[in-house]
Design a protein around this nucleic acid. Structure first.
Lengths: 228, 228
DNA sequence: ACAAAAGTGTTCTCAATACACCCATGT
DNA sequence: ACATGGGTGTATTGAGAACACTTTTGT
């Protein structure tokens, strides 16, 4: 006897994306303004329903691509949210994803969605359980940032040590000692110091670094811990 | 205008439970033998579909209760698995949960499901993507075990220091030094040494401990890290 | 000359590790 | 008396944290 699925309940399942960016100073989040009821005009995460022919990962990539035009975004699945009344109009489950994108890439944000970057610490109240999703995503981001130098995805190709420190300070909402930070990063041995300097921030100028992708991937494969 | 959901696809969504136990020596997993096609007779995780009137958490509790008769089991949501062909007969999404249960509680395992405890390290091959689910669950269990003394759920009320060490060795698949382990556990200050001894393992007998639930909860609230 | 940010090393402290002997008891 | 597992403390090492002055250069 083979299972007959016809009378099992079926559900609407969406994905919602927590999109993080970094502007060199603060951690940012990309939010969209609802243009339909309910809660029209309020801010929310970008989301969409999972189709019959796509996985949740694919749906999240599609949703992000629709909004930003970017392909192959760094995405990680977070949690499922299945409260029955989490949306007022229908029972909709949602799988959340967090995305890391480099703000400097010239993103063509689709104007249809009235999207806007907010400082993570100064974001508006969101609809439904999206505030919870963001909180969970920040926790995951912090955890992830101790396992691998997340900066790869959030920083431009070339960046200063200060940028990197600012990023970690923004992620963990803490201040670090400049010397200890530099020492620890250098001990990791995944950065390459270029000959170039960024002259915009000071008279002296500060050296630009890039990630050594090969060393970086090797470290990850070996499983390293990156505690600041 | 309000959203009309009628032509969005709807999906079958299941929960699958990775049920861990501990017998004092080895980490165990409770598996069920399929009694329907496809893959009848093979071993799998216990699972079930999410109904219209329940959250995924509730569905997981229900599934576990059906199998073991236990209520209020320690459960934690893990991941969603949404590969389109993860089951051959229909597109079924699954949200995995891991459960920790104390094997000593006299569990009435529902015979309908031909369930059996296996050594985690010596378990049979599972159907579909259930092997992946178990692997992911073990990783999460390890992570969780560094955040809180998981033993609470997996050990009987009273246990010896050796039991606790065996548990951690089973979870991390490593051996620890007896003195260092004891020192570290005592430093945590969450155990109470009782006057009783377990005489079954040696002539001398070994003291039994219990968790100090109050101190334990206080520590968790303060957010402690428990690295062995 | 001075202001403003960049760059750089050492000391101290504490936690993690390694390690070996005596104890209590049933046989 | 001896065999078996239980129980205990110390010394060493290494990593993380605290900490301040010099350098460069545009104005």
């Amino acid at each position: 006897m083979t299972q007959d699925y016809s009378h099992f309940p079926r559900h609407l399942v969406a994905v919602d994306c927590i999109i993080f960016g970094f502007d060199g100073e603060n951690l940012k989040i990309l939010l969209v303004q609802r243009n339909f009821e309910p809660k029209m005009g309020e801010w929310s995460l970008m989301g969409g329903f999972i189709g019959d022919e796509e996985t949740s990962d694919e749906a999240a990539q599609r949703v992000l691509n629709t909004l930003t035009g970017l392909e192959n975004i760094y995405l990680e699945q977070l949690n499922s949210y299945t409260q029955i009344d989490r949306e007022p109009t229908a029972r909709i489950m949602s799988i959340s994803y967090y995305a890391l994108i480099n703000i400097e890439k010239n993103i063509q944000i689709n104007e249809k969605y009235s999207a806007k970057w907010f400082d993570l610490k100064d974001r508006p109240d969101l609809i439904f359980d999206h505030n919870d999703m963001v909180k969970d995503a920040v926790l995951r981001l912090r955890r992830r940032a101790t396992t691998r130098p997340i900066g790869f995805e959030l920083l431009p190709k070339k960046f200063t040590m200060k940028d990197l420190q600012n990023l970690y300070e923004a992620i963990f909402d803490e201040k670090y000692d400049k010397r200890n930070f530099t020492n620890k990063i250098n001990a990791l041995d995944v950065l390459v110091k270029t000959a170039e300097k960024d002259m915009s921030s000071s008279k002296k100028g500060s050296f630009l670094y890039t990630f050594d992708e090969e060393k970086y991937n090797k470290k990850i494969a070996e499983g390293f811990m990156f505690k600041i």
